[in-house]
């Protein structure tokens, strides 16, 4: 009875920590870890040792999440331009995964947003100005910009903003790739926590 409760609590925590994974993958992971524990217990392993071998449910889930996001990132790296839908969820995960990411990722994301906005809005304002819209008064360093200059000037600034936005996206991807390298290493080198304890138990 106590054994079942321990396993149930572990799996509940694991499921909660797996949020962010697609539902089907989440259920699959849950089922697999559940059947692993069943096998382990059937083989006569003590429930505490069986759970300790899997590690903390949060850590185990992090391995799954990192694997999933790394997969998506490397899947999209073949295309020259980074695609935003593939970067966003990974961004959220890696931002929450490290202290540096907590600062770097939101700042870059903010820049990305602001400069994208400028790149879109400014040329529209320039065109509106050229057609005499009174609200679109564009002021340069030397007073209001003449109507004839409105379109070329705003498009030029818009293009520069677009380039900066693209640069931010590129930096974001670079940062995530570098962070994910650290993760990859971390995933691949984890040792069984009870290897030492087991040896002690056998002697």
């Amino acid at each position: 009875m106590i054994v079942e409760t321990k396993v149930r609590i572990y799996l509940q925590q694991f499921e909660r920590a797996l949020r962010g994974l697609p539902e089907s993958e989440r259920q699959d992971a849950l089922r697999e870890i559940g059947s692993h524990l069943e096998d382990q217990l059937a083989a006569g392993t003590d429930v505490d040792i069986a759970l300790a071998r899997l590690g903390q449910p949060d850590t185990l889930a992090k391995f799954y999440l990192a694997t999933y996001h790394l997969e998506r990132l490397s899947g999209s790296s073949r295309t020259a331009a980074p695609s935003l839908p593939s970067v966003l969820p990974a961004m959220a995960f890696f931002a929450s995964a490290s202290l540096g990411g907590l600062f770097v990722i939101p700042v870059l994301a903010l820049f990305l947003f602001v400069f994208s906005l400028i790149a879109v809005v400014l040329p529209i304002a320039g065109i509106a100005r050229a057609f005499g819209a009174p609200w679109a008064l564009i002021t340069g360093p030397g007073g209001p910009v003449p109507i004839g200059w409105a379109i070329p000037l705003t498009i030029a600034v818009g293009l520069v903003s677009a380039a900066i936005a693209w640069g931010c996206l590129w930096l974001l991807r670079l940062y995530i790739t570098l962070t994910s390298k650290v993760y990859r290493k971390w995933i691949a080198t984890a040792r069984p926590p009870t290897a030492v304890a087991d040896q002690a138990a056998h002697t």
Binding site: G55, T189, A190, R191
Partner: peptide, 20 residues
């Protein structure tokens, strides 16, 4: 894998690896 001490890995490593 656990039979060989040198190869023993955390199960938390093995399952995500299988997934990948």
């Amino acid at each position: 894998l656990a039979r060989w001490e040198a190869l023993a890995v955390s199960e938390g490593t093995l399952y995500p690896l299988l997934r990948r």
